[in-house]
């Protein structure tokens, strides 16, 4: 199942014909944070999979992983500032030794916990009880399934991933996920190539119908996420000769209605060393929060961070295209999107 890909070193970033901030200015918009409702913690790049589109460049070969000390700082921050939502991602976050403590202690503090769970990690040694662990802690599970067919899923996530994912989803269903109130199982669709996602509501209806009739699997919501032109997906765009066209597509599909609801406006992203960023994508590009802000989790201060200016780049067009994109899926009504020919 695991097919390792070469680690992508810091490469030249994707470029668009117009800068993101310039595009915002043309629409009289500015991107500033509104609050810190979500602490999104990337506990490391170690993963049992090596997906072709991964913006983290995660794989079984990666050794960057959050220490116990940093995890304790995360917990102290969650408790001290009563963080509403802790969103744990990776890599496969379950492979971090502090993962279960992060979950259970945060839940004990009254924090909502979301885990970006890749499904197949359930079949790794010592992880078989994950469905019960998630259920007992009332974790919101968010899992990638790029399509309801094997060919597309395996093409992106690795051979054999689809069958294991279906088995994992059935196990989650069997403990109540997707079927009982309060046990939320959300799926993530992202395109298996250089094109934008379909409208979230239409695709969710397809996924619900197909997952039920083909595999007897239930879930709550489908989040459509645009592939970001960074790391492995950018490498794919360059190798396949699609970079320029894809960037132009993102630019043409710029939807100003998405800006108000962009995820960077209400979250702080933390990397495995404790550094702070505006989002997980900026984290992967080493674009930390603006200079005059707290830079590490030990200095976390929501009052200072609440009104910060968001650090942007050409990749941000990925979050503003069409219906928009975030870790929670689309951020605007798709019908609010009209092709922008003013770029």
């Amino acid at each position: 199942m695991i097919k390792s890909l070469p680690i992508i070193e810091q490469e030249s970033p994707a470029r668009a014909a117009v800068g993101f901030d310039e595009k915002l200015a043309r629409h009289n918009l500015e991107l500033r944070a509104a609050s810190v409702d979500v602490l999104q913690v990337n506990v490391g790049k170690l993963c049992n999979q090596a997906c072709k589109h991964c913006h983290v460049d995660a794989s079984p070969k990666r050794t960057e992983i959050m220490s116990v000390e940093t995890a304790e700082q995360i917990l102290a921050t969650v408790r001290r500032f009563k963080i509403p939502t802790l969103d744990i991602t990776g890599g496969a976050p379950e492979l971090n030794a502090s993962f279960r403590r992060l979950v259970s202690e945060s839940r004990a503090a009254g924090t909502r916990v979301i885990v970006r769970h890749n499904l197949t990690v359930m079949f790794e040694p010592g992880q078989a009880d994950l469905p019960e662990f998630f259920r007992d802690n009332r974790v919101e599970v968010v899992s990638s399934l790029p399509y309801f067919l094997q060919a597309q899923t395996d093409a992106q996530r690795g051979q054999g991933v689809f069958d294991k994912s279906i088995e994992a989803l059935r196990r989650l269903n069997s403990v109540g996920y997707g079927t009982e109130d309060g046990l939320v199982l959300n799926l993530v669709y992202n395109p298996t190539g250089a094109f934008l996602p379909a409208a979230q509501t239409a695709l969710e209806a397809d996924f619900k119908r197909e997952m039920k009739t083909r595999y007897d699997v239930l879930f709550n919501n489908l989040f459509t996420i645009t592939n970001m032109p960074i790391k492995r997906f950018l490498g794919y765009l360059r190798r396949s000769g699609n970079e320029e066209r894809y960037m132009q597509k993102l630019l043409d599909a710029f939807n100003p209605a998405t800006v108000e609801n962009l995820m960077c406006r209400n979250l702080i992203s933390v990397d495995w060393t404790g550094k702070l960023y505006d989002c997980d994508f900026n984290q992967m590009l080493d674009l930390s929060v603006e200079e005059n802000m707290p830079q590490i989790i030990a200095e976390f201060n929501p009052e200072k961070l609440n009104d910060r200016r968001i650090v942007t780049g050409a990749h941000c067009f990925g979050c503003t295209a069409g219906g928009g994109s975030s870790c929670g899926g689309a951020v605007a009504d798709y019908s609010s999107f009209h092709l922008d020919v003013t770029s």
Binding site: L149, A151, Q152, F195, L196, P197, A198, A199, A202, L203
Partner: peptide
């Protein structure tokens, strides 16, 4: 082709 993919159709 692009439009079909972006409206949720698959290759089949």
């Amino acid at each position: 082709t692009q439009s079909s993919l972006e409206n949720g159709s698959n290759i089949e």
